Amino acid sequence: MSMSESTGAQDWRAVACLAPGGERLLCVGESSSQVRAAYAGAWGEVIRDEDRPTVRAISLQRWAGQAWAGTWEHQTYLAVPATRGGKASASETGEAVAAAPSPDAAEVEVEVEVEDEA
């Protein structure tokens, strides 16, 4: 088996990291590509208008360990959608970034292509 010993279908998730320390679960899925495709749509459903300015990053996480005992491990940051509709800002294209997205990122909307990862 791979690094994850879990056999459940929900091995990946996207979590919005809020300042000064809270978090909100956006979505879970079977693969990173499934979560990447779904998190922007969940953004408008899960994150309240008043909480959007406090979102500092969106963490893509993978379950590591047994199905009954393990931890969520951060893999990469995802683009923080710029609008309620869930489109990413121009400075974020859905690719991995080295650090949390800046709150000063450009607010130009772009379509994001999602690459399949198995």
Rank of each mutant, 00 (worst) to 15 (best):
A38Y: 08
E30D: 10
E109Q: 15
P20G: 11
S91Y: 01
T7M: 15
M3I: 13
Q75F: 14
E95A: 11
A37H: 05
R48L: 10
V112G: 01
A100P: 00
E95P: 13
Y77I: 04
G29M: 09
Q10G: 09
G41I: 02
V108H: 05
R36G: 06
A90D: 01
W63R: 09
E113K: 02
V110P: 06
E92N: 11
E109G: 00
A106M: 04
L60H: 08
A90V: 09
A105G: 05
G94I: 03
E107T: 12
L60W: 03
A88Q: 02
D116M: 04
G86T: 06
A38H: 12
P103K: 00
T83E: 15
W72P: 09
T76W: 13
I47H: 05
T93V: 00
S6E: 11
V15E: 08
R52F: 05
C17W: 08
R24S: 03
Q61G: 02
V97E: 14
E95N: 12
E73C: 14
P20F: 11
W72V: 10
H74Q: 12
M1G: 11
W63I: 10
P20C: 03
P101L: 11
I47K: 01
Q61S: 09
A105C: 07
V110T: 07
G65C: 12
L25P: 04
A16M: 00
A42L: 01
G22N: 08
C27D: 12
D49R: 13
D104C: 08
A38Q: 15
R62H: 12
A64I: 08
G44K: 08
V46L: 01
E73P: 02
E50P: 08
R24T: 05
E115N: 01
P103A: 06
E111L: 10
H74A: 09
V55L: 01
W12C: 01
G70L: 06
P103V: 10
T93E: 08
V80H: 03
E109M: 13
V108P: 00
T83R: 15
R48E: 10
A106S: 15
P20S: 13
E115D: 05
A69C: 10
T76N: 06
A67L: 02
Q61D: 12
P101F: 04
M3R: 10
R52M: 08
R13E: 04
H74Y: 06
G41W: 05
E30H: 13
E5K: 13
V46P: 07
E95C: 06
V112C: 10
A16F: 01
Q61E: 15
G29E: 06
D11R: 14
A100R: 14
W63L: 00
